[in-house]
Amino acid sequence: MKTLAAKRRHPAALFVLLLAALLTMGTAYAFASPRTTAAPSTAAAATDEEAGKAIFLANCASCHGVLAQGGQFAPSLAGVGAASVDFQMGTGRMPMVRPGVQAPREPRLFDQQQINQVGAYIASLAPGPAVPSTEYTEGGGDAARGGEIYRVNCAMCHNASGAGGALTRGKYAPSLRGVEGKHIYEAMLTGPQSMPVFKDTNLSPTDKKDVITFLQEVDKGENPGGYALGNIGPVPEGMFAWTFGIGLMILAAIWLGRKAA
């Protein structure tokens, strides 16, 4: 104890203490936080619909109701279709990890087969949009045309280069970078959260395919001009000019000012 007391004024003591505190808190949190339970096995179920219902009851019914009729915090799922389920569960937005103004994108909790089963169950409740065929969701369309459609219909919320943008009261249009083509198609089809629906009569499947192709082009992340500073326009550019730009100039000026003539 005496050696410890002697070391307590050591310059590193503060950092060691901080590190120890952080480690303790982190470990304690890891043990105390609720762990995600493994999804129940569905092998026993006879059909996809039944298996999907089992998953639904275990993971979704607490908010959406045992008959998917909806509740105080969650909408009815009759008629949303398998496409909606595939989008929401496939991007990890559902089951929602915490209450909030908007379900954020998270690592998904279920594999594709389980999502399909829940989709089959929801689709059996009432007719709704189905999961789109891969013909339209894998890209390979006209990127330039897709860009034009994107700028007129999507850029006002999602930003011209898919970086996302703010909506009112904490809601936001998420970034579209690295999103699977299928999920982009389903989002346009079903209009999740604040997003409007783009029906096939509005944007034809070919239009949607072109938009996906355009976003894939954006995703390639080719920045001919150098590091893109997040591709969100003049704000980071101005910040850069005011920090690194003028900072380097001032450093050079100080260096030159000190140089003996």
Binding site: N159, N223, N231, P234, V235, L248
Partner: peptide, 29 residues
């Protein structure tokens, strides 16, 4: 700076069209 950091990547924005607008429209600082 100019050779390392992109500025005003106009190809990302596309041509001007009075019916379109992009989120994050800001002027220069």
């Amino acid at each position: 700076i100019s050779s390392l950091f992109s500025i005003n990547s106009i190809w990302n924005y596309g041509p001007y069209d009075p019916t379109a607008v992009t989120a994050g429209s800001q002027p220069d600082w």
